[in-house]
């Protein structure tokens, strides 16, 4: 059963279409990530589900109740939908405890729920009487989550919840939030532009582009079998090359590569993941020139130029990092996916 079902959702601001007929199912108990670049309409989707914005057309169902449709509009406070906006937006005039219990009926605000939630979000009990500005960014984020979970919503909506945190904190905060959501058995819809965040935290990833979902699936489906070259490059990165398919192989500048799936013979676009490219000495593979080297300690990312002028990115262990202008040899490992020609953007 789906906790949230969205059908044929349309929304424009003025004559600017934002959502162009969206369908989405958020399965009960799952964490679903909506992944898209900024301005693709993903925050608008969240705000429509929460009830803050009314769509132009389409329906939204939460549980088995239609909350948004041609003849229905349920007010935000009666939807049972939790909302965690960017930066948490804790009530600055209330303590942590009163923030968390804000959505509970008066009689339950002093009950055991608070302690249970504090434990759930792994926040020390003595922080409960502090004010939001006395907490760190990550703590504020967790309190905002506890506040949203307290009334037991059918689904929690998280709008770029980690974008204001610094990089190191973002990963651990994300992990904590995912753990809390799973412990609570909650259903969550997370909006993000960070593909790493979406792939690592969610059970299902919905890739959004120009107001539509172009692919919805498990993280490995989206990563391993992107529906087109643009999704492939957006999720996980990669380089596009022109090629000619013949049977189970595709002929490219990097040699004859093995296809991961059947594809009709003829011209095609091939996407090669950075980790599929190995950089060797000049005498192995296809000759290329090193343009840039980004050193990350354990890993190194190398931008290479092929003889045709096409550029490809390789990522690998940093045992012997090359230097810019080095002549190297490039070898492709594993199978690749092909897409119809003209799908390059």
């Amino acid at each position: 059963m789906s906790a949230v079902t969205v059908r044929a959702l349309v929304k424009s601001y003025g004559d600017q279409p934002v959502l162009r007929g969206l369908d989405l199912d958020v399965p009960e108990g799952s964490i679903t990530a909506v992944l898209g670049s900024s301005g693709c309409g993903k925050s608008t989707l969240l705000r429509i589900i929460a009830g803050f914005v009314r769509p132009g057309a389409g329906t939204v169902t939460v549980g088995d109740r239609e909350v948004e449709g041609p003849r229905s509009h349920v007010a935000p406070q009666r939807r049972g939908v939790g909302y965690v906006p960017q930066e948490g937006a804790l009530f600055p005039h209330l303590t942590v405890a009163r923030n968390i219990t804000f959505g509970l009926p008066r009689a339950e605000r002093r009950g055991p729920t608070l302690d249970r939630l504090l434990e759930l979000i792994e926040l020390p009990r003595d922080l409960a009487d502090r004010y939001p500005h006395e907490l760190s960014g990550g703590q504020q984020q967790r309190v905002a989550l506890a506040r949203a979970l307290a009334p037991g919503p059918s689904v929690v909506l998280l709008d770029e919840p980690f974008s204001s945190l610094d990089a190191g904190l973002r990963v651990s905060a994300g992990r904590t939030v995912a753990r809390v959501l799973r412990h609570a058995g909650a259903t969550a819809l997370l909006v993000t532009h960070d593909q790493g965040e979406a792939l690592s935290l969610a059970d299902r990833v919905a890739v959004m582009r120009e107001g539509r979902f172009v692919q919805v699936g498990s993280p490995d489906q989206v990563y391993d079998a992107p529906v087109d070259a643009v999704v492939a490059r957006f999720v996980g990165g990669g380089s596009s090359l022109e090629g000619m398919v013949r049977g189970v192989q595709v002929e490219t500048e990097l040699g004859a590569l093995e296809l991961a799936h059947p594809f009709p013979d003829g011209p095609a676009v091939v996407v090669v993941r950075p980790e599929q490219l190995e950089v060797h000495d000049l005498d192995e593979g296809v000759a290329a020139t090193v343009i840039e080297v980004d050193y990350y300690g354990a890993q190194v990312v190398v931008l290479l130029e092929l003889p045709s002028g096409a550029q490809v990115t390789a990522r690998g262990p940093a045992a012997r990092p090359p230097r810019p202008n080095d002549k190297v040899g490039v070898v492709v490992v594993g199978t690749v996916r092909a897409y119809p020609d003209g799908d390059v953007r």
Partner: peptide, 20 residues
């Protein structure tokens, strides 16, 4: 945004006015 959060926590317009 604080009012939106309050609404999403089940508070009516009046309750939001009073509490937030």
């Amino acid at each position: 945004v604080l009012e939106e959060v309050s609404r999403s926590l089940g508070q009516s317009g009046w309750a939001t006015l009073r509490r937030v």
